[in-house]
Amino acid sequence: MNAAHLVPFSLALANAACGMAVQQAELKAKAADDSPELGAPLAVGGTIHPNIRATLDGTASPSLLLVSGHPEIVSAEDGKLTGRSPGMTAILVTTREGVVVDFHHLWVERATRATLHRLYADGREMGEVSGHIDVILGEPLYLTPKLYFGAQELAGAVEGKWSVEPPLVHIYDEGVAQRRRLVAERPGVAVLRLELPGAEAQVSFRVVDPNARKEVPEGAT
């Protein structure tokens, strides 16, 4: 069993969340991960950096650790929980001395499908991409994937392999989990593919050069 990361305590009273067993702690995914709370199964290959908040009577929290009952299903290292293989295991929230404050059962599933979603530059979601995008040459386009097991969205940021063929669009890693900035560099039609553990998503692009449109003769429709 792996002892995991020392997690800072947030001094706040909170309602128990995500089904913690005895409601003495709250374990949730960080918003920055852009993933659902830990009420959802974790994707195989998916990583979350959970926030832990203890809600103990009459005391601030001790330093807390996350301990996975089965590291081969969910590993708990460096403050991260990572889905390793399909299954279920308890994640214990313990003190340094091994006293359990609370625990949560976490499932891991291999994704059966993936979707791509457009984002605004500030990270807000615009919506799911439905197969085709028209892109203005030089304008950035922000995309992020979501993984599903059937109809259920899976938790965790999963790094996949992004590619465009033909390479009309350059893919920039924004340094934020799963998020990519795409910039079209040449006009034409291309297909973007994202390969993820257990699933793949793709979308076609038509890159339009606005200057070329200006050159259309007057009177033409």
């Binding site: 003495q24 103990l56 009577d57 009952g69 089965h70 006293v99 359990v100 404050v101």
Partner: peptide, 26 residues
């Protein structure tokens, strides 16, 4: 594992919190 009890239940004759533990199937 030993377990911390946030809100120990009331015991008619007991004067201290019950011992609580967590057992994990390996």
């Amino acid at each position: 594992f030993p377990m911390h009890a946030n809100r120990p239940g009331g015991y008619a004759t007991g004067s201290s919190a019950p011992q609580r533990h967590v057992v994990l199937g390996m």
